[in-house]
Computed example of a mutant assay.
Amino acid sequence: MPVVHIYTAEGWVSPRRKQMMIEKVTDAVVAAEGREEVRAMTYVLVHDVGDGGWGYQGRVTRQTDFKALIPPDPKD
């Protein structure tokens, strides 16, 4: 059973984006396995790392550092 873990900074990925991410990652796992029945066994876990618990290029990154970069939710 495939289990995929995705870590992201808290506040970066909206609930709608998480839903899309889970759907697309599941599709990718099914494609990689080449068997549709794997879909029923695939878990995708999105972990929100709390503010101050995320580092990039050797320094702590806080929500205030990336707030302006958060992408808008996609249109359905």
Rank of each mutant, 00 (worst) to 15 (best):
M1T: 06
M1Y: 07
M1K: 06
M1P: 05
P2V: 02
P2H: 09
V3W: 04
V3T: 12
V4P: 03
V4C: 14
V4W: 03
H5W: 09
H5Y: 11
I6A: 12
Y7A: 06
T8P: 02
T8V: 15
T8S: 07
A9T: 01
E10V: 03
E10I: 03
E10W: 01
G11D: 01
G11V: 01
W12D: 00
V13T: 13
V13E: 00
S14F: 01
S14D: 02
P15T: 08
P15V: 04
P15H: 01
R16L: 10
R16G: 11
R17D: 01
R17P: 01
K18F: 02
K18Q: 15
Q19N: 09
M20R: 14
M21K: 00
I22D: 01
I22V: 15
I22M: 15
I22H: 00
E23H: 06
K24S: 10
K24W: 06
K24R: 11
K24D: 02
V25N: 13
T26Y: 14
T26D: 11
T26M: 09
T26L: 09
D27V: 09
A28I: 08
A28L: 13
V29T: 09
V29P: 08
V30P: 01
V30H: 06
V30E: 05
V30Y: 03
A31K: 15
E33A: 14
E33T: 15
E33P: 00
G34L: 14
R35W: 07
E36V: 07
E37V: 13
V38M: 11
V38Y: 04
R39F: 05
R39T: 05
R39P: 10
A40T: 06
A40D: 15
T42F: 12
T42M: 13
Y43H: 08
Y43T: 13
Y43L: 12
Y43S: 09
V44H: 05
L45S: 14
L45W: 09
V46S: 01
V46M: 01
V46T: 02
H47Q: 14
H47N: 12
V49P: 00
G50K: 13
D51S: 15
G52P: 06
G53S: 08
G53M: 11
W54C: 05
W54R: 02
W54A: 06
W54I: 03
G55H: 11
Y56S: 07
Y56E: 06
Q57F: 02
Q57T: 05
Q57N: 03
G58N: 05
G58F: 08
G58E: 12
G58T: 12
G58Q: 02
R59T: 15
R59E: 14
R59G: 12
V60P: 07
V60C: 05
T61A: 08
R62P: 03
R62V: 12
R62Q: 04
R62G: 09
R62D: 02
Q63H: 09
Q63I: 04
Q63P: 11
Q63N: 13
T64A: 12
T64Q: 11
T64P: 00
D65A: 11
F66D: 04
F66W: 08
K67I: 14
K67T: 09
K67Q: 10
K67P: 00
A68L: 04
I70Q: 05
I70L: 15
P71V: 11
P72Y: 07
D73H: 07
D73N: 10
P74Q: 08
P74E: 09
K75G: 10
